[in-house]
Design a protein around this nucleic acid. Structure first.
Lengths: 338, 338
DNA sequence: GCTACTAGGGAAAGCCCTTTCCCCGCGCCT
DNA sequence: AGGCGCGGGGAAAGGGCTTTCCCTAGTAGC
């Protein structure tokens, strides 16, 4: 690989001059040298070594993002918003997938710190696990103590600024919609209970139930993997336990799609026999049959806010921004037949 | 940020010793010093500066991947296969989204080179643009000349090893399925024509048409954006131009889903009135109504092969591996009603 | 004509680590 | 007892770049 020194030698100038030209420093360089240098750069196909640059430069311009899985539309949207702001601010972003593994999350915090990122953004549900929360907080605090900025999306009790999607409220809204429609036998298809998102959404659902003078007995809640197949399995289990179910609330759209497929397999029509609602409003939600009634969170905006806070001037005390949820009414929810 | 030197000072040893302990070098260090150092590392929350490490170390262990968009299931799958092999081989992978912008692709090659990656993997359709191909090749060659490894997925005429998904064959197979079913009025919903994937798949379709003594007149081909809405728009245009259409071949599943929605909007049933087929077998393909007949490419394996080649010992001449396509029969394709 | 600047360029000191080379002292062998 | 080998540790030389500081001319000002 050609180095700065090679270019300098070839152009017959000092390394300093080459550096100034290549990086467009404010220092004025004569047209003649500039041309000579640029030609040498071309001929040698010189590309500056990013690591050497980062080492030599004092200011950092890259931010790290830790999500569960970018290929999940939920995170893809958040990331999109985040990237937009990042590139507006001239920042590079490194994306890390934890695949819902707390240990990997910890490792990534370390990795990002090692890469000297300017700030770390943690998105995606937290875990009900005090030991983990503690060590994560320790790492985050150490990072912040040395000038690092942290912002989190939807994580409770963590160091740094936070953007909080209204999971509880969303649960409440969708629950209200279901109960108001007149459903009495409602099953819940839930993601693993150690995810705080699950418990938050569930809490909202419970609040809605109470308001409608109903309860959500735990046997009507099936926990499964956070994906389509998990949703299908949980739905099957729910139906086996109680065939009278007239509505299924899935705690995210992927699982709702699984529910749809499980119902279809049993020859039950939606919403004729059973209503189904989801959560997140993934793009595909409007394209399944029937289109899914679900809860929309302004994900792009959430991502944008998270990074904005992280790049803002540091505040004396951590900020928390709440963002509202909204029910999107489509055809998968109807009144029970009765 | 604490540095190696800080740790060394605190533990009362030399920097060399700290480095050896932290990196687990083969050189033996006494238990006593090891403990002292580890304690200092803990107390200072020391994390080695990754850039300094990369600068100091000679060997590279990270590979770069350039895709159109990881959140697209197509690339998500490829990336998954790739990541698996990468972590087996102890490599880190940097993912870059070009969002189908050739210039951004060029920039990313540069960026990855700057980051001293060990190899670059380029996945996703190429462009019919000689000027672009030329400058991309120039950059790639420069990179390879300095020991970089390159492998590409489904790109023609590019430097480096290549994994070629059978786009043409896939087009042929799905085309044969449609024509064999007896369809005579077939419309094609295509992605932008400057993508080589589009033309390859189309070529296969044409071959199938010829074999069934039919043609694919250009007015039966509608080009649009590579997404759901593009598919819907193209379908609408096709239907307006010729209401007798009994089958629509979409050149990828996202567009097929758009087609489904456009047909639904017009009150046409699938496959009763019009059959629809897709390409790629995205996970969602089986969950739409009706489930989509489509072409499956072993994407995970494609990704794995691409990185395997890139990490292999360099070969004297570039290798090309073809991977076959397979039609997945589901309900969206049926015989025309007549 | 002399001083006082300024523009333009270079030398060199870092940035933080890895790794080679070297040194010291100990135990072993003869 | 002397030489040798080796285990354990440190000094220092990079690795490629940025940036401060300094120097030299040339220019303007009086």
């Amino acid at each position: 690989m050609a180095t700065l020194a090679d270019v300098a030698r070839k152009a017959g100038v000092s390394a300093a001059t080459v550096s100034r030209i290549v990086n467009g420093s404010p220092k004025i360089v004569s047209e003649e040298l500039r041309e000579r240098v640029l030609r040498a750069v071309q001929e040698l196909q010189y590309v500056p070594n990013a690591h050497a640059q980062l080492l030599a430069r004092s200011h950092r311009t890259t931010v790290g993002v830790i999500v569960h899985d970018v290929s999940d539309p939920y995170f893809a949207e958040i990331t999109r918003g985040l990237q937009r702001v990042a590139s507006e601010q001239g920042r590079l972003v490194i994306i890390c997938n934890s695949y819902r593994d707390p240990d990997r999350e910890l490792e990534y915090v370390e990795l990002l710190r090692a890469h000297q990122v300017e700030s770390i953004i943690l998105a995606g549900s937290g875990y009900h696990d005090p030991a983990f929360t503690k060590s994560l907080n320790a790492k985050l605090s150490a990072y912040m103590a040395t000038g690092g900025r942290v912002s989190v999306v939807g994580r409770h009790k963590l160091a740094g600024d936070a953007v909080m999607p209204a999971n509880e409220e969303g649960g409440y809204l969708i629950g209200s919609a279901v109960f108001s429609a007149g459903h009495r036998h409602v099953g819940v298809v839930a993601a693993p209970r150690q995810l705080t998102t699950t418990t938050d959404r569930l809490a909202g659902l419970r609040r809605a139930a109470r308001e409608h003078h109903r309860t959500l007995p735990s046997k009507r809640i099936a926990y499964a993997e956070f994906d389509r197949d998990g949703g299908a399995a949980a739905t099957a289990a729910l139906l086996d336990a109680d065939p009278r179910l007239t509505a299924i609330v899935a705690l995210n759209d992927s699982m709702a799609i699984g529910a749809l497929s499980a119902l279809r397999e049993r020859g039950l029509s939606v919403p004729g026999d059973v209503s189904v609602v989801g959560f997140d409003d993934m793009p595909i939600a409007r394209d399944v049959t029937p289109p899914l009634t679900t809860v929309r969170l302004p994900l792009v905006e959430i991502g944008a806010r998270a990074i904005t806070m992280a790049l803002d001037a540091p505040q004396p005390s951590p900020r928390v921004e709440e963002v509202p949820a909204e029910v999107i009414h489509r055809e998968s929810l109807a009144e029970p037949r009765d």
